[in-house]
Computed example of a mutant assay.
Amino acid sequence: MSELPDDELMLRYRDGNLAAFQELYRRHSRGLYRFIAWRSARREWVDEVAQDSWLALHHARGRYQPQGSFRTWLYQIARNRLSDLQRQQQDMLLGDMAQESDFIADMLAEAAPPVALADAALDQRQQTGALHAAIRQLPAEQKDALVLQHFSGLSIEEIAQLCEVPGETVKSRLRYAMRKLREHFAHEAKPQEEKA
């Protein structure tokens, strides 16, 4: 199964092959979870949206026809479910955004490779937190493109399909996002250089 492309696995799953689903889940569950975590305004929504996305895939398997990237199709399911949930819960978001601000940094810091020294681990966690805080400040389109490419592993073409924009637009968004991150950290480094 591991050699088969995603579309072939989904077609096999459509025909009742559970092992094909297991391989799709193995390949895409982590990236999907990261995608949802970056877009979610509330920590408790991430698991719910991930589970709902896989359940929706299960229910839609009989209608599945390869028309592009399987991964893009799966991420669109998650994106739609998260949008629905956000619309339903809009009034709850306002007061809780500040409490949830460290969720992504904590989640990704836990997944980082272990570091032998406690000071080094703390420094790495702070750097990771600073990076994710800077990413969260990017405009939504730039943040989405950056997260989809660097954390979920989508190609330019897959991001373009998911975001419904041309590939050149995705490339522009990625360039602007990286430029803003470089500028942010260059600006942050100046006060520390002045202290030294």
Rank of each mutant, 00 (worst) to 15 (best):
G16H: 07
A111V: 02
K143P: 09
M10A: 15
L57R: 00
G95I: 10
E158Q: 01
R34M: 01
C163V: 07
K143D: 12
M178F: 05
I159L: 00
Q51K: 06
F70A: 12
G16F: 06
G95S: 09
H28Y: 15
S172C: 13
L162C: 05
S53A: 10
H132P: 04
D144S: 06
I156K: 02
R34G: 00
F70D: 13
E188N: 04
Q126D: 15
A19R: 12
Q51R: 06
K143Q: 15
R42Y: 09
M178R: 08
D106F: 09
H150D: 06
R42Q: 15
Y75A: 11
W54N: 00
F185N: 08
D123M: 11
V46L: 03
A37D: 02
I104H: 14
A112D: 15
L57E: 03
N17P: 01
I36V: 13
Q149D: 06
L74N: 08
D106R: 14
R182N: 11
Q67A: 13
Q126Y: 00
R79A: 12
F35D: 15
H187F: 08
S29K: 12
G68K: 00
M107E: 10
R81T: 02
L146W: 09
L148D: 03
Q67G: 10
G16A: 05
E44L: 00
R136A: 13
C163K: 13
A118P: 10
M92F: 03
R79S: 12
A134P: 04
R136V: 07
E194D: 14
Q192M: 07
L85P: 06
A130R: 09
R43C: 05
L138H: 04
Q76W: 06
L108A: 10
W54S: 00
K171W: 01
A19G: 01
G62L: 03
L82I: 11
D91P: 10
R14E: 04
R71D: 10
A109P: 03
G68N: 08
Q124M: 04
M1H: 11
A98P: 11
R30Y: 15
